[in-house]
Design a protein around this nucleic acid. Structure first.
Lengths: 223, 223
DNA sequence: TCTTTTTTTTAGGCTAATCTAAAAATTTAT
DNA sequence: ATAAATTTTTAGATTAGCCTAAAAAAAAGA
């Protein structure tokens, strides 16, 4: 019934995130980057995590989570996303304000707290940014993978999530009037800069740069 | 805008608690006891807190909080008690289950979070154990000081709080049917063991040992 | 292939928060 | 008032998590 430090939990979460885009082996340098530390510090921590059998680690070969490590990573991610739902839905924070708070709340150690929170929030399936919430059993649901930028003229889709989680991007969407769940219809795509003219209910037209469109995740339109 | 470690925050909270029952000077040994550490470790920490001007510290003389230290202590206590209200009122935890979780939640660093939580909870004045919640400005409201054990036969009062916060005591109250806010009338006091026979609505009679009665805080009966 | 560059690890230190053992100050008791 | 007991502080270690500088391994390039 070991307990883990905040730092260890953060490493696991970040290894999971890095492994699930790109190759499955995560490099020391990549971790140094996302933890904002030095490679030597990462090596130190990797040894500790390997001792605890949370990662597979062979010198110079990069790391992979063990089953137990992945289970733990998903648990942290579940907590993080549920707390974000709480902060936005119950306390009225903007979706651009909650990341830092959730980074702290995700380390509160009580399984019963998390499950009661889940119930209190009516078992949400997605966090405020459209990221899927892992199940209590430790399964990560599939996330949408199609981007708004992938659509062709005249196609219609439902806005489901964001790839860029920065406050700047989220605030830009707020100012544009783009919200998750809204139906978007592509009316025109510029051949020059790939920017899009789209319409959203109730019949509003707006222009979306390629940089925005490739950071928006979409799925089939709601009926 | 310095930030403080969990440990520092806990020391401040505990110094406040010890200072406000008994003398105002808190001893190294008393702190070693409540922090479950050794006196030598306490001395180390007192030096750090003194360097940060959060306490007045003179060797061998015990400590007192500075104004800034007390402000911080009250902030932590406010957070702790608001989170307890959340856990009980919103998530449905028992009042005997919430202390440990609140010990962690109290360290989440966001003033806006605390103030939004306060609003979400409808600005509660007391936590689930009847302890007053400090104001955002850093003022600790008066707590009731009269105990059930102080009442005389035929007197009536309202149950307002507990002095003993142990799960065992709280569960004992639950099993007895004693809840905060309920009206108690003392019908008889045993000269032998100071136990009380009391009645609570709707006309239920029960026996309360002196050990229980001196750990229950009461105030004037509700009309 | 065999240098050169990049990545990763090792070696040795630092700080916060803890410890034990011993010394110093204070308090209590005779 | 002085000896004994208690409390507090100092001295010196330990651990987690970080650092820099240097060595070693792997990858890239001519």
């Amino acid at each position: 019934m070991s307990t883990h430090s905040f730092t260890e939990e953060n490493y696991l979460k970040l290894i999971y995130a890095l492994a699930n885009r790109g190759t499955n082996e995560v490099s020391t340098n990549a971790l140094a980057e996302v933890t904002a530390t030095r490679a030597a510090s990462v090596t130190d921590m990797l040894k500790r995590l390997a001792d605890k059998e949370l990662i597979h680690y062979r010198k110079y070969q990069g790391v992979r989570l063990t089953d137990e490590g992945e289970r733990l990573a998903l648990k942290i991610i579940r907590r993080h996303r549920l707390w974000e739902v709480f902060l936005v839905d119950k306390l009225g924070f903007g979706w651009d304000q909650v990341h830092e708070m959730a980074e702290e709340l995700e380390h509160i150690r009580s399984d019963e707290l998390v499950e009661r929170l889940d119930t209190f929030l009516d078992n949400p399936q997605f966090d405020p940014h459209g990221d899927p919430i892992p199940t209590p059993a430790g399964h990560m649901p599939d996330a949408p993978s199609q981007k708004l930028a992938d659509l062709l003229p005249s196609e219609t889709a439902c806005l489901l999530g964001v790839l860029d989680h920065s406050a700047a991007f989220l605030q830009h969407l707020d100012r544009s009037g783009l919200t998750l769940g809204c139906t978007v219809n592509v009316s025109e795509i510029s051949a020059f800069d790939r920017s899009m003219r789209v319409t959203i209910p109730p019949g509003q037209t707006l222009f979306v740069s390629y940089d925005v469109a490739r950071n928006l995740l979409v799925g089939p339109p709601k009926p």
